[in-house]
């Protein structure tokens, strides 16, 4: 497996020899090779290859329709008709023990619009826990997840209130806490702050940076400023291909490809 030396977030000491069959936390978190996707005759993704370091945020930017959301859904198994290979922690996702459901417990996905279940806040957070007994004794876990998602202070005295009483921003953070509660190896976020107010945006970005210290994140975003704030490596996609990828500062300051340059300028000019 190739290791991309351009990723400055990639920790050199986490580079021991690894076993390609068993999942190994010290290895590269995600390796995608020649991922291709065709739906209804339309080519959504082609020849997508990249790898993800063990910690840090990787932002995926690009114009609408570039296939960014579809990429995420291929990675976590919601879409299964892709070609190529995806390996999480050295283990091929198609051969994941337990099938796609198990894979999704290790690769969490947070959708653009928050979807909360019709139960209490606490029940929502431990929804991913399998057994009823686990859910009963999960108080510590609930608190930890809510803190990581920057929601604890706002809900700590009403954990049993219905989750639907929260604002959109709070609900999205609840979704993040819910995903964190099952301790995934990696978290994928599909434009998590797209429809939220600036305060929630800020809170979520902060919690993302914190989470990224231990868990690799992939974040699709339309907001270039957000991608810069997230300080990770950046992947620029267009028409289903990766045009350029690299450390954020480098990409934004000196984009190598014309398309990247155009996109950045166009987005900057069009930004509010």
């Amino acid at each position: 497996m190739t290791i991309d030396p351009r990723h400055e977030n990639f920790q050199q000491e986490a580079l021991p020899s690894f076993d390609t069959v068993s999942p190994n936390r010290e290895a590269i978190a995600l390796q995608v090779e020649r991922l291709g996707l065709q739906l209804d005759g339309k080519v959504i993704l082609q020849e997508v290859s990249f790898s993800l370091p063990v910690k840090g945020v990787t932002s995926v930017i690009g114009p609408s329709g570039a296939g960014k959301s579809s990429l995420l859904r291929c990675l976590n198994g919601l879409l299964t008709q892709w070609s190529g290979s995806v390996a999480v922690n050295g283990c091929d996702t198609r051969q994941w023990r337990g099938g796609w459901d198990q894979l999704r417990r290790h690769v969490g996905l947070i959708a653009q619009k928050p979807v909360v279940f019709n139960t209490s806040i606490r029940a929502n957070v431990c929804f991913g826990l399998k057994s009823w007994r686990q859910r009963r004794h999960a108080d510590e876990l609930v608190e930890k997840s809510l803190r990581q998602a920057a929601l604890w202070d706002e809900v700590k005295d009403r954990l049993n209130a219905p989750a639907t009483t929260l604002s959109m921003g709070q609900q999205q953070r609840l979704c993040i806490a819910r995903a964190l509660a099952i301790k995934p190896r990696m978290l994928l976020l599909d434009e998590p702050t797209a429809s939220l107010d600036p305060h929630s945006k800020q809170l979520i970005e902060q919690s993302m940076l914190q989470i990224a210290e231990q868990t690799p994140l992939v974040c699709v975003t339309h907001d270039l400023a957000q991608a810069q704030r997230l300080q990770g490596s950046v992947i620029f996609m267009c028409d289903g291909r990766i045009i350029e990828q690299g450390p954020g500062e480098q990409l934004f300051a000196q984009p190598q490809r014309i398309e990247t340059r155009e996109f950045i300028n166009w987005s900057v000019c069009d930004c509010d």
């Binding site: 337990g98 099938g99 198990q102």
Partner: peptide, 8 residues
């Protein structure tokens, strides 16, 4: 985690 139990 008991995988076969879940599929069962």
């Amino acid at each position: 985690m008991n995988l076969s139990h879940l599929q069962y």
